[in-house]
Amino acid sequence: MDALHSFEVIRPKTVDEALAARIAHRHSRMIGGGTDLLVNIRRRIETPSVLIDTSDLTDLKTIEHGDTGLSIGASVRLFEVAEHPNIQHFYPAIAQAAGSIAGPTHRNMGTVGGNLCLDTRCIYYNQSEWWREANDHCLKTELGDMCHVAPKSKGVCFATYSGDLAPALMLFGAEIDLLGPDGERTVAMRDFYIGSSRQDGSKGDGINYMAIKPGEFVVRVRASSPGRLISGYDKIRIRRSIEYPVAGCAAALTRDDDTLTDIRIAFTGTNPRPVFLEGTADLAGSTLSDSVLEGIDNLCKDQLMSMKTTFTPGHYRRRVATQMAKRLVGQLFNAAG
């Protein structure tokens, strides 16, 4: 139960070396802090033959902040994001999200790239091999073909995305720079997470939750300048640390006198993807009234989909995510007044 399968570890010094290793080893996985991946490997959820350790990639360890925005390398560790003065000042939602992840050991180990690519989670998936075997496995693993959360899902997986950074970055129109065998490309974060889990299978789900091609890896994430946006992050958890979010909410807005002129909301811990709430633009233009809050309610009802993937019931996660959003928007609006 305890032994890991045998694998090779490559520790490239440069991004070019990392890419070469990635091309040379088709079944490799990138490993940052390993707080997610090594635990999954121990559970034999996956058994990559080669791990490419990103911890020596100094080129990916920089945080740059300027007039045009923010750029964070994939190997930057989570505590560095949480403690960065410019991120705290200009992008409080991002700093707060990073500072709220798991516990201090995890934030020391975990990287931005790793958190963005955090595997989706489910109580039928993140368990020991013995446990999964006893439950006939599930379709997110190679050995199973059934979703225990939604037995009639016809091959669609509902495992939940739980990364804290993604919703906060999405507020600022963040883009992810990917490097792969075909070179570098940039994907908007809202397009990067594809876990819609639609019954027609038209897009991704809890298994295929990232628009990433074979051999590609995240090199950095870039956020636009916040302008006058003020932002914040809140999450509900049952205890203070070492816990995935029951639900997390990032929000940003601008206020001119009493008018809400921009409002953006994103969630984690609810769907198989981080959800950037669509349609909030229509809520801007007036003061923060009950009708705006009702509007948030309605958008959440349409877009949040929490299933029985965690020990906390789905109906609760969906409702409190919505409530958190409304509260956070209220707090930000007042703070901006």
């Binding site: 305890d2 635990v39 791990l51 201090p104 050991t105 180990m109």
Partner: peptide, 27 residues
């Protein structure tokens, strides 16, 4: 716990607290 959940294996690596159950020897 061997899974980064309990912290009993916390050591300092390059001066910072980390869980030694989530670091492979090669890393």
């Amino acid at each position: 716990c061997d899974a980064g959940d309990c912290g009993a294996c916390t050591v300092l690596i390059d001066g910072e607290q980390l869980c030694a159950c989530m670091v492979s020897v090669a890393q």
